[in-house]
Amino acid sequence: MDLYEHRILIVDDEPALQKMVSDFLYKEGYRQVAVAGSCREARGAFEREHPHLILMDVMLPDGDGFGLLKELRQESEVPVIFLSARDEDENRLRGLGLGADDYITKPFLPRELILRISAVLKRVYRARDRQCDDVIWLGDCRIDLGSGVVYRQDPGGEEGVFDKTATQTALTAREYAILKKLAGNRGQIVTIDALCEAVWPEGNYGYENTLIVHIRRLREKLEQDPSRPRHLITARGLGYKLV
């Protein structure tokens, strides 16, 4: 299912915020956005629309979002992102273990909200984003994250054109995990700790040296000159960045 075909329900009692968020979602490409201003309206809209994702304010005029989620959880596993305006809500959210998929504190930047919504939809429904497929281009390198193969055009070949002469190198599982994490945050520094967490989620303390080894091997596969990397850049003392 296309990412933008998912139905989103916004539950917030502030009409200006409802309108703003739904406008941004429409602009982003989402076609089915419903709004509700209270728990009662939300229950009705949920029955009617069968949303794929609910964006819910914690404080509603006729109850609180946590109670409503508990109620909804009895009949549905629909992903919920909470919009909270109180710092205490974060603690409550953690403590309650309600199974909310994410939360965002007000005020927020619309881009951040849209990113979180699409991240949850992709994770839950494995939705395909038109704008982001599984292929990454890095100069004369094409990386197919679907198959975990790096295609590199030989120097001297026509740039951007891959023929049978392009060398193919397979990524190892660790290299694949590192590259996927970096590609997901392309242009941004990803800390050593976040990379270790992505590669060794079961406990990542003390893997920094191993990470450096994997990065070096990855550079050998991706970079024209691994000693002078152009795409997989080191942020000294912090982490790495894919540009």
Binding site: D12, E14, A16, L17, M20, V21, F24, M59, A85, R86, D87, E88, T105, K106, P107, F108, L109, P110, R111
Partner: peptide, 21 residues
């Protein structure tokens, strides 16, 4: 104070959102 900051945050979301847009 918690109440006041709560009440400020929702309208601030709208201001921030449209300014960013």
């Amino acid at each position: 104070i918690a109440g006041i900051s709560h009440d400020i945050r929702t309208p601030l979301s709208v201001v921030l959102g449209y300014a960013d847009a």
